[in-house]
């Protein structure tokens, strides 16, 4: 990267970090620029890699099936016209209904049956037994149609402890990923831009 490139990137980075000193015009400028660039990027990618090759080109070739998604897409665009906005619900219904249909077998397999199978098959070791107890205890916590009292309540409480460990581990990973990003930005500012750090 040349000096002009690194300087523009560094100034935009510093503008965003200026938020640490409170909301200010530099941060707001960078924030709005980022939102604008992201919107433009998304628009171009969507038009060039989905709408153009999957809807416009097949219709240009005279392929009739290509007309259906184009009509459904245009129905969605009617949302911009308040008087006809209701017609967009038909396209929306196809996405929501179709998505629901795809989700039933996929979710049932990946999130329920596979997890249950992995838990049941793992009881060949102490760790497997702890996992089984943890899964059952955590599931009892989510049964809200029965009062959490007695043995059921004890199980739910153990489930809460398991969940706290999981949330702690997830929190740790989030902290580490954000700190890694911070280190990356500081390396850029001090190394690539100012030349204080040498790799």
């Amino acid at each position: 990267m040349n000096l002009l490139e690194t300087t523009t990137t560094a100034l935009l980075t510093l503008a965003i970090y200026s938020f640490l000193a409170g909301d200010n015009p530099f941060y707001k400028f960078a924030e709005h620029l980022l939102v604008g660039l992201t919107i433009g990027y998304t628009l171009v990618i969507t038009l060039k890699s989905v709408i153009w090759p999957q809807a416009i080109i097949p219709m240009g070739r005279g392929e009739m099936p290509g007309l259906v998604p184009l009509i459904l897409g245009c129905l969605i665009l009617l949302r911009l016209v308040p008087r006809w906005a209701g017609w967009s619900r038909i396209s929306l219904a196809l996405v929501v209904g179709g998505g629901a249909g795809v989700a039933i077998p996929a979710m049932l397999k990946a999130r329920v049956l596979d997890q249950m199978a992995a838990t049941a098959n793992g009881v060949t070791s102490w760790a497997g037994w702890i996992i089984l107890i943890g899964v059952l205890a955590t599931l009892t916590y989510f049964v809200f149609t029965r009062a959490h009292r007695g043995a059921w309540g004890t199980s739910a409480r153990i489930g809460r402890y398991f969940m706290m460990v999981f949330f702690g581990a997830t929190f740790a990973y989030t902290v580490m990923s954000r700190v890694a990003l911070l280190i990356g930005r500081l390396e850029f500012l001090m190394g690539d831009w100012l030349g204080i750090l040498r790799s």
């Binding site: 998505g99 629901a100 249909g101 989700a103 039933i104 979710m107 049932l108 990946a110 999130r111 329920v112 997890q115 249950m116 992995a118 838990t119 760790a127 702890i130 996992i131 089984l132 107890i133 943890g134 899964v135 059952l136 205890a137 955590t138 599931l139 989510f142 489930g159 398991f162 969940m163 460990v165 999981f166 702690g168 581990a169 997830t170």
Partner: peptide, 23 residues
């Protein structure tokens, strides 16, 4: 071990919830 157990139970709960909502 413990984090995986809770994660699996949460995934099972999410899966069942999504199936119910989809239905």
């Amino acid at each position: 071990v413990p984090a995986l157990a809770a994660k699996r139970a949460i995934l099972i709960g999410i899966g069942l919830g999504m199936v119910a909502t989809s239905l």
